[in-house]
Amino acid sequence: MQLIDLPLIWAVIIGFGVIMYVLMDGFDLGLGILFPFAPDEQARDVMMNSVAPIWDGNETWLVLGGAGLLAAFPLVYSIFLPALYIGVFLLLAGLIFRGVAFEFRFKARTSRYLWNWAFAVGSMIASFAQGCVVGAYIQGFETQNGVYVGGALDWLTPFTVLTGLGLMAGYALLGSTWLILKSEGYIQEWAYKITRPLLIAVLVVFAIVSAWTPFVDELVRQRWFSAIEVIWIFPVLALFCAYQIFRHVGKRNEGMPFVSTMGLFIFSYLGLIASRWPYVVPPDYTLWDAASAPESQLFLLLGVLFVIPIVLVYTAWSYWVFRGKVKAGVGYH
């Protein structure tokens, strides 16, 4: 059993699930955030159509992450969820509203504006709550003997509000660059126009969070400032991606802005992991402290290793099937 480090494998699986979720649900949540600001109803049709076939697959990663945490790192599950109690409720409520709006907006006639709002507000709340989770993770949790002992609203601080707003801006950026890829004409032009301001907003939050984080926690400060370490590679690469977005929007490139935004997310995510590794419940517990029994991790690993490749193939396939531009006025599902 000592030959393979099961907790490490599970950390990789769950880390992979999280970034899959963030990237994929990110752009459809982002479209929801941009929804009220779209030029007209036809643009909203196109926005929604561009993700309608794929968004639910995107969300299943979240469920898998939740259940996987309970199975592989129960300590994380049983500390995060109580600590983020109210936030989790808001997240779920937001996801429910936007999920239902996806279905009913296409079928609604006179009540359509209600579903527009359900979609937009649901997406905003869900994104904000997710951003707060990131902030709360950086902050750390107050625990005693593996049990959360903090208050109901500890997760809501100026810092987490900032990360919440930051993630909203980030998702909106993913959404606008996705829209550049999937739309044409005046809708695409609008998406180009909002991308740079969104990028600037993201960078501002990025800068403040980076400057602030070292003061939130001693370990993080040491990791970044005790010496010039390899870890600096991540923010450098993230900034490089940001520059690419800026440049390719200027050149009216269609694909690169989205790809670069994904890069921006991936490198920020890796940077975040690197500054906390191997703590999964900062500041006290590492991933080995949080792991469930090896036989339980192994029992589930078998099923997951079987299913994840199939899901990836299917995901790739459905993106392939729905590739290309979404035309205005065609199939307003």
């Binding site: 259940a67 996987g68 199975a71 469930s292 339980s296």
Partner: peptide, 24 residues
Amino acid sequence: GTNWSNFAQASSNFIGPLLSYEVV
């Protein structure tokens, strides 16, 4: 996790894989 976290923590070795298999 939100309301029964002590239960989740104590029983996760068994309940965790089961619920995950349901989702999977």
